[in-house]
Amino acid sequence: MSSVLTFATVGFAEAWWIQIIKAVIIFLVGFTLVPLALMLDRKLMGRMQMRYGPNRVGPFGALQPMADIGKLLFKQQFRPRTSVGFLFAVAPAISMVCAAGAFAVIPFGNTVDIFGKEVGLYGIDVSIGILFVFAFSALSVYGLMLGGWASGSKYSFLGAMRSAAQLISYEVSMGLSLVGVVITAGTLSLTGIVEAQAGMWFIVPQLVGFLIFLLAAFAETNRPPFDLTEADAELVGGYSTEYGGGRFAAYYAAEYFHLVIASAIAVTMFFGGWMLPFGIDPPQWVDPIVVIVKTVLVVCFFIWARTTFPRPRYDQLMSLGWKILLPLATANALVTAILVVVTH
């Protein structure tokens, strides 16, 4: 057992082979949700804009993401003569790894008995919980910045600077918006936070925090209307201008991965994770399905917002982040702290 505890104390230590199996399963779940979100994005957006969306490949066009990814992977890799080869190749991988790494702490259910062994339905349950996610999202900025810089192109470089500034700005409000939840739950561990929502989902007492989180998540995941890093209609293409083929696919998939993770975090922190409302207590094998369904619903909300709102100007985005969201998030954390101290 001691070998399991090499790295940090985890809330629930398991045998190494269970950890490996869990890692593979979580990886598979993650990489199933990503094409699903991609597909949903295109189909749902098509329906909202009175068109069909992709409907050629497979039944109802369901295999379109596979066709897209296949096409991108088989394209020839090329790069500008001015680019820095090593960094140019590594940067999309950094984006991808950081996106996938954050998925490890998302809880899909409590510990269950499988063949007489207790297994937690999550990758790891670290005591730092949500900070783990933030650590990876902080590092994912490097994926964009290195990609933009190593491209050796002014368009890429300026796009990368835009996105880095945006991500750093909104990371602050995003972190502060979740402080209220952490104070209310009294723990940083994500499973602990879900269990603390047994009586009432945190969206009710932490509504302000949720709204701030949602707005910041749009900017953090580069989703329209806050997709100022790419802004397809206005810029050449942001940091990924010079990318094509598999490397572009990595960036693209990482973006959707961030979307899925942001939705899963919203579900975990505000929508009660694997719990169902009105005292419904289904058997435990339903828990992961509940989490995934809730996550997909939040993804649908992101797509809905994409088709509804126009894109703000860059300085408006920055003003919103620093002058509205940040003070509001700070006030929210402060008021929550005072209330918790008073009521306890």
Binding site: T9, V126, L131, F132, A135, L139
Partner: peptide
């Protein structure tokens, strides 16, 4: 763990990005 996360978030994620 907390120091490790703070190291990455504050130093690698914010200061060095600048």
């Amino acid at each position: 763990e907390f120091l490790a996360a703070a190291q990455v978030i504050v130093y690698a994620g914010a200061v060095t990005v600048l």
